[in-house]
Design a protein around this nucleic acid. Structure first.
Lengths: 159, 159
DNA sequence: GAAGAATTACTCGGATACTGCGTGTCCGAGTGTAACGGG
DNA sequence: CCCGTTACACTCGGACACGCAGTATCCGAGTAATTCTTC
């Protein structure tokens, strides 16, 4: 899985701690975790495309959350970065080769059993991701570092 | 996710249908689904290393299952091919940059909240995979193609 | 006819190239701000 | 003092290289079966 997901989640968390007061430019977000600003920008563009962030150009421009953290699930973030494709892609190899050509024995209109099995597991994964919001993760982090919110505001605050 | 997983599962299924009578060489297994024999062999070696298959050299050599299909889970196969690493690898970027250096505010001895969240979802995925055996998938496939077993024996049978 | 050794043909196994995607970087288009000048 | 214009500095956004893991391939080492020779 792409490491861009980690970048995205931490960036979204920082924006959540900061509140939706102001837009934050890529450079500041990158500096807060020592990331490549240009590459982080690539990920942020994906988040904009997924409508998790909105971008503002010009002076005092940057990115800000479009929704409260309670309305952003981990699945939203993963899908935005990884592109909603499934982990396991079935190439339907069962239909090929000496076995696949024995079509009389196989009903290819039904879904591949291997594909179904993998899909079941993937649904479990996605449901677990969808059940956790950005607010949940934020709270979990605060549990062990209560001052984190004010620290972010001090470091990222524009004024 | 690597497509080798699909190759591995279908190959294991074919061996299951054939029964543990005889070893089947890579070439036959590859031909049954029109795969690259040499590359399939690479995957089979991984399965041998994971002790799901045993290999026999020489004439009438090949691969055979080491355990009954009921004792092989989907997770076993995925782990064997993909190499037991987790999908999401945490780079601990929270400890870097202008925010990470504010260590007074953050307790780095505790696990990263983002990492924990992703890990939860991954556990759900692995449990779903572990709860499905190769025999389950085999049965599901047979439900829509009862003659599949005999077809495999006819196509792959050595005699 | 039986036993044993040499031959053979087939198998796996690891070492060797290639390719596509994730990773990383760069420069141009566009916009909000601020400064400036005129009324 | 206020407003319109102009210039500017900063922002995003997409287009351009790089590297590595997944993909694909090849050839050599090793073994079991077979064949041939000999007793």
């Amino acid at each position: 899985m792409s490491q861009g997901v980690e970048w995205a989640v931490h960036t979204l968390l920082n924006l959540a701690w900061l509140g939706t007061n102001d837009a934050v430019p890529t450079a500041a977000l990158a500096a807060s975790h020592d990331l490549s600003a240009t590459y982080l920008n690539k990920q942020l563009q994906l988040l904009v495309k997924a409508e998790l962030l909105s971008s503002a150009p010009g002076k005092r421009g940057g990115f800000r959350l479009t929704r409260p953290p309670e309305s952003i699930t981990m699945l939203d973030v993963v899908d935005a970065i990884e592109g909603r494709e499934s982990l396991f892609r079935c190439a339907e190899i069962r239909q090929c080769g000496t076995l696949g050509s024995q079509s009389s024995a196989i009903d290819f209109t039904t879904s591949c059993a291997v594909k179904s099995s993998m899909a079941r597991a993937e649904v479990a994964w996605r449901e677990a991701l969808a059940s956790q919001t950005l607010a949940d993760v934020k709270s979990a982090a605060e549990a062990h570092a209560p001052t984190l919110g004010s620290t972010v505001q001090r470091v990222l605050g524009r004024d």
